[in-house]
């Protein structure tokens, strides 16, 4: 692969997160470089999703420092992460199920729209112009993910694989610099997985988007990611390029058990 991996864009230093007495994450440090595909793996309950939630401001770690683009991040809310161009998808599909595919994806561009509700109500000023401009960008995303045929369909009528794709489309519509994907391939068949891998690689390649990815399918992870971090019981047990991680003793132990 001949892509250019840039400087560190996100640096997590000694992150600890507790829920009451339960330690979800303990003293975890790793970084993400610009334009890379960074995978987070680990057995169930290892704290992978919590890690993503820390990155985009849903959870607030009790200890540790998060540096994003060189500045330390203070307490933040999820909508602020969106304004810093961090987008994400969810493990359980989190689409707006009463809306059409098109409306869902249009919602992804909401931080870029400036018109207020009075302009919308009277359909004057920036309202109409913005709707058209953003529709154009959204249509590009729709083309990119090959979902033209379903753009007017309510999302709750779509099969699972397509819903996952629409969720990716909604995240991409925000033109994120960093994209967090929480198990994008869970529950998919081989073909759907191949499609999804292709889309992830294409996004990374064409738009230079930095991708942080949680995935259980080891074949996929080892194939598409540049670096992998491994968590187990909220602790980091491995970090490096896929080949390194594959041969790491601790990682093998965590996945296969001690007595293999």
């Amino acid at each position: 692969m001949s892509k250019k991996i840039g400087d560190v864009i996100l640096d997590l230093q000694n992150i600890s997160l507790r829920f009451g007495g339960v330690k979800a994450l303990t003293d975890i440090s790793f970084n993400v470089r610009e334009h890379e595909i960074r995978a987070i793996i680990g057995p169930n309950g290892a704290g992978k999703s919590s890690m993503l939630n820390v990155i985009n401001g849903v959870y607030h770690p009790q200890e540790g420092k998060i540096m994003f683009r060189g500045t330390e991040r203070k307490k933040m809310e999820p909508h602020m992460a969106a304004r810093q161009n961090i987008a994400r998808t969810f493990q359980n599909i989190a689409l707006f199920k009463g809306m059409t595919v098109l409306d869902n994806i249009m919602t992804g561009r909401i931080t870029k729209m400036k018109a207020n509700f009075i302009e919308h109500a009277l359909w004057f000023g920036r309202a109409k112009k913005e709707e058209l401009e953003h529709r154009k960008v959204v249509e590009e995303v729709i083309d990119f993910l090959e979902i033209q045929h379903i753009r007017k369909t309510p999302v709750n009528r779509l099969p699972y694989g397509l819903q996952k794709r629409v969720e990716l489309a909604r995240a991409l519509a925000a033109e994120p610099t960093m994209l967090l994907l929480d198990e994008p391939m869970a529950g998919m068949n081989v073909e759907e997985k191949q499609d999804m891998c292709r889309f992830i690689l294409d996004v990374n390649d064409q738009f230079g988007t930095t991708i942080v990815l949680i995935e259980h399918d080891m074949g996929v992870v080892m194939d598409i990611s540049d670096r992998v971090v491994v968590l187990d019981y909220g602790k980091k047990i491995g970090d490096g390029v896929p080949d390194e991680v594959k041969n790491n003793e601790d990682v093998i132990k965590a996945y296969l058990g001690a007595g293999h």
Partner: peptide
């Protein structure tokens, strides 16, 4: 939750 993650 998804709404706020999107930036609403």
């Amino acid at each position: 939750v998804a709404a706020s993650v999107i930036g609403i």
